[in-house]
Every structure is written in C-alpha cells, then in structure tokens.
Design a protein around this nucleic acid. Structure first.
Lengths: 343, 343
DNA sequence: TTGAAAGCGCTAACAA
DNA sequence: TTGTTAGCGCTTTCAA
C-alpha cells in the first residue's frame, strides 16, 4: 500500500486474459458478459469466476469502437450567473447524472461558448464522442435545437420548442404558466387582491409564459391587472427597483415573481422601507433556489420537478437510442409551490 | 472503402475517406492531424483541404483504443444539500469544465453513492473510461484518496490529505484558516472586539482549520476567545440556535462563520430579535454563495478562488498524464474577502 | 452451445 | 517525407 515510485500504469485484464483463465474462447467471455443466456450454466459460472478473480471490466474504448456507441450524453454547461439566485441548471445536472447513470449512461460536460451556442456540439458529434445530447436553454432565438435537428443529432431538449411547434425532437418542460397561476392563486386564497407581477422583458418567452399564469389567475377572480405588472432584467437590483416603483404607484399587497432573483429584489425593497415580508407584503419567487430556502423568513417559491424532468429526458433518450429508435413527443410537467415565511 | 448509401444518416467520414480524397495514405492523414510538422507543406495543405471538405474529425473511440487514453476526467458529483447555502461544488465544476476543456479534456460526471464514496471510481477505472479523476471532499475519514492511491489511479485532490501529510498524490486546496483570519481581522479593524466563531463539529477538520484562523486573529490582538465559540451542524437552523445562544451568553458584536449556511442562521436570529445585520451585529460567512450575494443587505463572505483551483488542478493533471509523468506537490491558495452590507 | 475469423478507426513502429 | 504492416480490445458474423 505504501507507494514510493511514480504512477505506473498497469494494464487492466482483457477478454483474452479471462478466456485463458477460464479455459474458453474470447467469444464465450463476451457472451458471458453480454448474452449470458447463451451459455451453459457451468460454463457461465466458470467464466464469471474468472472475471471476478481478475477484476475484469470490458474496455470502454474497444467496446465503443465496435458498437459505435459511447454511452455518453453530452451536456453544455454554462456557468450560473453570479449575483443571482438562479441555479436551476445545477440542480438539474445532479438529477440527470443520477438518472442517466441508472440507465447506463454517463454525463459528459462541455463548456458553453456564450457567443456561439452550437460550438462544442459539432466537435463532439463529428468525433462520435457522445451518443446524444441534452439541450437546455432552448428558448426563442437559440439555434441549438434547429441546428441539432438539421444535423440529425439525437437529442432531447429541456424546454419547449417555442418558435417551432412542429419540431420533431422530443422535449421535456415544466409548465411555467401553471406555476405562476398556483402562486397567484395561493395569494388570492390568502385574501390578497392587489397582486403584482414582476417579470422579465417581453422577448423572454419563458417569462411571458409565466406571466400568463398570473394573468389567468387574476382574471378568473375578475380582478384587474392594470398597473400591477412590471418587466425588467433578471437581477436583484432590477427587482428591487421595479418593486419599489410598483409599491408606490400601485400599492400591491403581494408580489409574484418570475424568478427568485427578482423576489429577493423585492425583499431588499421591503427591508429598506422597514416592511416585513410575509407580514406586511407577501412575496413568491420562482425556482425554489437555495436562496429561497434559506433567506429569512423563507421565500415561498415555485419548484420545478427537476428530478422528474431528468427521468423523462432519460426515458426519451433511451427511446431515441433504442433499436429500433422510438421518438417520443413532448412532455409537460407541473411545478409545485413550496410555501414559506414570505406568504 | 464502401459507404452505405441510401436514406440512412451518413456515418461520419473516416481517415480512409480523407486519404482517398487527398490521394495519400491513411497514415499521412493521421500525421497531418497529429504531427503536421512531418508533412511537406503542399501535402499538408492538400490533406487539410480534404479534411475540411469532408468535415472529418477523428473517431474518439478508435483513437482512445489505440492511444489508451480517453481525454476524459472523472468527477464524482454529489448533490448540493437542499436547505443550505452550500454550492461550492457547483461553482467548482463550472471552472473545471472550462479549464479542462482548454487543455483538451472533458469532464465526465458520475453519481456519488453516499454510503460508499469509492463506488463509481472502480468501474470507471477498470474499464479505462477516464484518464484520471478529480477527487473532492477528501476530508478526514474519507477513503477516496487512499483508495485511489492504492489503485495507483491518476488523480488530483481538491482538498489537502489531512490525515496523511505524506500522501504522494498532487492536491490543491484553499487556506481556510487564512480565510477566517482575514474575516476576523476585517471585523477587528471595524472596531469589533467581541467576535464570535460559529463552526462545525470538532471532527470536521476543515471547520477546525477555519476556526484556527479566527483564534489566530483574536490572539494577535490579545483578545480572549473564551465563551465566544460554538460548534454545530452545518444547517441554517443550527446556526440560528447557536447564534441565539451566543448572543445571550457572550454578547458578541460580530460573528465569523464557517459557512454561509451558518451565517444565514445568524441573520435569522437577528431578524427575529429586531436586530439589523451590519448595523447592530456584524456577520461574515464563508464561500460567497449565491445566498451571500443576494440576501439583504448582502452577506460579507470569504470567497474561495475556485477558478484558480481548477487551473492548478488541470495543471497537475497534465503533469500526471504527461510523458514522462511529472508529479507536482500540493498547492495552497489564498481566499479573499468579499465585503457586503452585513459588515 | 462454443469457437474462429473479420474488422470497427485509429496510430506506433518500421520500411521504403 | 510517405507508405505498409500490425494490432489496440471488443463484438458481429458465421461455422463447427
């Protein structure tokens, strides 16, 4: 166990080593691993014993070369924005790693070039380094999905093809409108009537979708939304400024926000004015970030079922990569509300 | 070389396709890609032209098989704890993906079995699926490092080998004691004298290390630390309770915490008592999480230079995997303090 | 039920 | 400077 010398690569045992030890042909060992049913019981156990004794595990590169499959799923991993509460991607990656591992796949991360979202995909695709991709951030104007479709690359999108309802690729998404509606209804049931919406700029389809949920909930109670909505950048400071403005102009008693980041901005405004979130003004965020979970007194937030998203994505991936390939349609999942101190 | 024609998506071009188009041998194409210096200028340009025309990219599996290298780095990816502010791992992964990509490596994620930290490593190692590992969470009692050393697996640790100063593997770590000392000194310079420490249980070496920085700073000013320290679990609620207790027993005017999670716990206590963080009591966290960055009025926190950690780790990795291998020693990096509203 | 032969696409070693 | 040969470790024929 003590080591003094440097790293000496020891070659792992191969199929041939196992075959020799078990006294069978290499092919029989391969069958023992991949088609155990084909072997006679005693041959199988003899081979398995040899495998165990040598600690044999099939060489991935050789298997990949032969089967033209890597059992790797590529995921573009763009850094979380500093200064925001947004970390949906990180939580999703965890779920994806767990789920895909159970299905025999590993996740390969590659960096996202902010200028060219399709960079990185191409190299991995052409070198057959991955079997498929999981594409995130497939919002309007992002060319990833269309590019991948054109290349006939197997992929599943986390996010609806907003700009192309006829897109042929499988996708999984969370119903943001339903989430905002649940959040708004929650406040309505608490007796609030002047509920403000804090969202993103109009060109953000996801933000507009969530906003529609707020509108729907308000309208269903016959409540006006006039003057109660605001659109801004997804930063704490924008949320702070927008909520300060709304508070003066429209006197809302509750805020439903498109993100936890904006919701924290509201909490800044409240703190600055000596108001207490949850007592004086209600606040609901979106994404159930660590910030929502820990900030006093706890931020009520809409939580996306990312574990389920990962499960559906892997399911679609398995269909895509199966023999024969099975193409699944889109899957829309429902978020839930996590109630905390701010409401 | 016959290529299947028809409606089926084309298989990517191979070395042989390029060779035929350029009118050279396969080996020459290989050299054009890997040792361009060996070719005559006109031959090279002709081959590169053919490569470009066909969109050729070397097949990874074949190259991996032949060179016995995957250019993949394995990283065990354990989920961030819900309800805490801890997300150092996520930020680190981003940096690692960026940095290793620049060095020609991709990051392969595999799930962490909480019960057996070494599970997952073994399978990847034996199947030569990765060239090396980056091992995190190498705290005392975690068998990963020793296990990997015993297997002679190439790896670099993010974290010092606390329990084995003679460990032969390269490691990169951040000086936690220095971080806590900077934080404490910051409060001392603001005029605080009764500065409390909120840390983890004694068996957490990292926590004890950070605590030593607080002690050092206090002692250097001749200040007593008696009754000013507390040890608890790394949860918001533990931080809340511990700080409430300290506030009553020891009347500190400032808190230095082993994590942002505990620091947020302090902020809960302050809010509950109508105290204002930064005005009535100072609070410093550790890790510069998104929570620290966004919670009102902004939590002063010690930030680990994870980008630099990734750079050093990849550098060590390149040494380990080079020909000949170069073993680097440990690297200890300095954190910095990000000052915000709570101080 | 088992074995032999072929070859996936690439590069190291050597020959021309 | 370029080409030829061999073989990385595996699985897919197909034959025994």
């Amino acid at each position: 166990m003590t080591r003094t010398s440097g790293y000496v690569p020891t070659t792992p045992p191969t199929l041939a080593d196992v075959a020799e030890l078990a006294g069978v042909s290499r092919q029989t060992v391969s069958n023992a691993v991949n088609n155990p049913d084909l072997l006679r019981a005693d041959t199988l156990s003899r081979v398995l014993e040899a495998i165990d004794e040598l600690g044999y595990s099939p060489n991935r590169a050789a298997r990949n070369l032969r089967t033209r499959a890597s059992h790797l799923i590529g995921l573009r991993f763009a850094p979380a924005q500093e200064g925001t509460a947004n970390a949906t991607m990180d939580r999703f990656v965890h779920s994806l790693v767990e789920t895909s591992s159970a299905a025999g796949y590993h996740v390969l991360l590659f960096p996202g070039d902010l200028e060219d979202p399709t960079a990185g995909y191409d190299a991995l695709l052409r070198s057959t380094a991955v079997d498929a991709f999981v594409a995130t951030d497939t919002y309007l104007g992002n060319p990833q999905a269309a590019w991948l479709e054109a290349r006939r690359a197997p992929f599943v999108a986390f996010g609806r093809p907003w700009d192309n309802p006829d897109a042929a690729h499988p996708w999984v998404d969370v119903d943001g409108a339903a989430g905002a509606e649940i959040a708004t209804t929650h406040l309505l049931e608490k007796g609030h009537e002047r509920i403000a919406w804090l969202g993103w700029h109009k060109d953000q389809v996801i933000g507009e979708d969530r906003r529609a949920g707020w509108t729907r909930a308000m309208r269903s109670r016959g409540l006006s939304t006039t003057g109660l909505a605001s659109r801004s950048e997804d930063t704490v400071n924008s949320g702070r400024e927008a909520s300060a403005h709304l508070l003066e102009e429209a006197r809302p008693t509750g805020f439903v926000c498109a993100s936890d980041t904006l919701a924290v901005g509201v909490m800044h405004t409240l703190a600055e004015r000596g108001l207490v979130a949850g007592r004086d003004v209600a606040v609901v965020g979106f994404d159930d970030s660590q910030v929502a979970q820990t900030v006093p007194p706890g931020l009520t937030s809409v939580r996306q079922p990312l574990e389920d998203v990962a499960v559906e994505i892997v399911r679609a991936l398995e269909g895509l990569l199966g023999h024969p390939p099975v193409r699944r349609g889109g899957v829309l999942l429902e978020p839930e509300l996590v109630v905390r101190g701010t409401t």
